[in-house]
Design a protein around this nucleic acid. Structure first.
Lengths: 381, 381
DNA sequence: CTGAAAGCGCTTACAG
DNA sequence: CTGAAAGCGCTTACAG
């Protein structure tokens, strides 16, 4: 077992041992042409005794593409990305494709390598791109690579994509706060990239503005905060906002990760949530239910599943499982939002907030809570 | 831009346009041999006007291995896996390697494909394997593939690996509970696989037993619960345990994910944490700090970084950044553990527990808390 | 049903 | 410094 590293077994060696030609071995392995049963058995035996495994690069080179589905995504630690990916993996696991994953910097300007280039270099059988914008060059490269592509959480006229109606989601979140009596409502979201294609945060902001306008509520310039995506960056923006002379009584954060940052800022500034400050997020990642965060639930896993099934179809596979319905966006009310308080003076942090935090969990999991969850059918094209 | 999908540009086309031979183009691209400056420029120009990108499969086939680092890991949604991976990605991002990721089922019996087979089929330049056990066949395959391998969170005599002293960690956790006066201490961990190599949970259990024995405390058979890894499975095991006629007053869960399940079970059964039940986890994932979970912190990111740097070294790269010290395991005391209560009768859930939950956060982040954190140098070979 | 031949797009000695 | 040749390990027409 510790001999000199013999070179890996090749198809030629298998052919020799089985007493057939290389193409015959290939036919047996790929079932690409009829082979006499006896021959087949000899080949299979040779494969097993030698422990042969085909070289995917050689196969891919001669076939013109590899047996790989390439998934390109931004930082994998992002919970929403991980959830979608996980569902996608589940779908692809049963398929004949290797799943290869390439993790990219989110801000395109920091990116050394372009998406199209990665596709072109790897020649995968199919591509799934999560939460990443494509530019013209990417489109051209992918076009040249002539490979099926499915997008998640970004849009393009050229490729099918799964994404929710973020504008409606933004309205939904904002209306939840308005419904609680809030009038000083702020928004915190991603720094908006110049690259088009993944406007999730920007669209949620649009929905916020729309709802505010509809309710005839003012949006002071200080009430729109953006920063590079992240919990800590959001915390800092929120802290500044909460120290304004006229701080908001409610904040809609474009994602749960950012909402968690807002909660941290509230603690820092000494504001009681939800009595002095209401906070609503977006996504409904696991941390949201763990911390009692009120949020807009979007179907993260469904989008991963759907994208996977769609790609398999495009690759010519018959898909047994039918694509899951795309569930509606919905408000999940937990314990970080509440009616606007008449008392706007800041008071020391009390234990009350955390007591409520527990009630939340119950609320969101009990059947009766359904009544408290506003619903809205997302507009989809 | 919407022309018939021309086939991707090849090196031969570049050579033609530049008026040189294919090997010369190759030399320019790889800087593998001196090329006249003028020739070089012509080639570069041709590459740019054609938008050429080398076919990695072809390169890999002729070189005998691809320019890829293959990362093989179990479910990526597992927070501890994601954290290690993220750090690994950061290190490898600056390297010349594509990072390809293969996600595997954790329980080997459910696994259709073996690790060694994946390596053999892909012929990567290097491999990192996270939290996955290798068997003899895997070892043989990898040996044949003759590729550098680094292990994270599993051990092998053949490959370098980064893993903490889980036995010591188990003792640390258990001693924390013993130090609080608990005597009825239970353990909940992973179902222990037959495959050797990733005995993290089993080793933590060993540490637990050792500490209990040393303190002369009994371990009733009902106090050792195992289930397939996961929050919900752990919840069920914990629920059963908490309904024993003699329930434990403290539970050590082999991972934070499982500890969260224990907390859910406590809520379900109506036990107040930490007054009626103390819970300690292992890992210190983000959810732990968000929920105030007391836990054993292990250096998840450091292990990812270290493995990445080690692999780059094995691949013959000079590594600028020096490998981070492997930090010690330490107890992070938050709000789910407390002194054993004299009152063992079950009482209705009170708000007190959650009030404490907030104090926790402060404790763990304030400098003064260091004094409350036991430390232990892990034994490493 | 099976084999000899050509080719996939690169890299790497080998000459010059 | 550069090109002609061989080869990496497969697959795919093409004959038979």
């Amino acid at each position: 077992m510790k001999d000199a590293p013999e070179r890996p077994v090749t198809m030629a060696q298998v052919a020799d041992l089985a007493g057939v030609s290389v193409p015959t071995v290939s036919r047996v392995i790929n079932s690409s042409a009829p082979v006499a049963e006896e021959t087949r058995r000899a080949v299979v035996r040779a494969i097993e005794t030698l422990g042969y495994h085909p070289n995917l690069m050689a196969r891919g080179l001669s076939r013109g593409r590899s047996d790989t589905v390439l998934v390109i995504l931004p930082h994998i630690t992002e919970p929403s990305v991980a959830m979608r990916l996980s569902a996608l993996i589940d779908v692809l696991r049963k398929s004949p494709y290797e799943l290869h994953l390439v993790d990219l910097e989110r801000p395109p300007e920091q990116r050394i390598r372009r998406i199209g280039e990665i596709v072109l270099r790897n020649r995968p059988a199919g591509v799934v791109i999560i939460s990443l914008p494509l530019d013209d060059v990417d489109h051209r490269h992918i076009h040249n690579a002539d490979v099926p592509v499915v997008l998640i959480d970004s849009t393009s006229t050229d490729f099918p994509s799964d994404s929710v109606d973020d504008i409606a989601g933004g309205e939904l979140a904002t209306n939840h706060l308005i419904g609680l009596g809030h009038t000083e409502i702020a928004f915190i979201g991603d720094q908006e990239e110049t690259a088009i294609g993944v406007p999730a945060s920007a669209n949620r902001r649009l929905g916020y503005q729309r709802a505010m306008k509809f309710a005839d509520l003012p949006v002071p310039s200080g009430y729109k905060g953006t920063a590079p995506h992240g919990m800590d960056t959001a915390r800092r923006v929120a802290r500044d906002m909460l120290r304004l002379s006229q701080p908001p009584t409610a904040i809609f954060a474009a994602s749960d990760v950012q909402a968690l940052g807002v909660l941290a800022a509230a603690r820092e500034v000494g504001l009681d949530v939800p009595r002095q400050l209401s906070v609503i997020g977006f996504d409904d990642i696991q941390a949201a239910s763990l911390t009692g965060l009120t949020t807009i639930r979007q179907p993260l896993e469904a989008s991963g599943r759907r994208a996977g099934l769609q790609l398999l179809q495009m690759l010519g596979h018959r898909v047994r499982e039918k694509k899951p319905e795309f569930p509606e966006l919905e408000v999940v009310v937990r314990s970080t939002t509440g009616p606007v308080s008449s008392n706007t003076a800041q008071e020391p942090l009390s234990a009350v907030s955390l007591e409520k935090a527990d009630m939340v969990t119950k609320v969101s999991s009990s059947p009766g809570s359904a009544a408290r969850q506003a619903r809205l059918i997302p507009r989809r094209k």
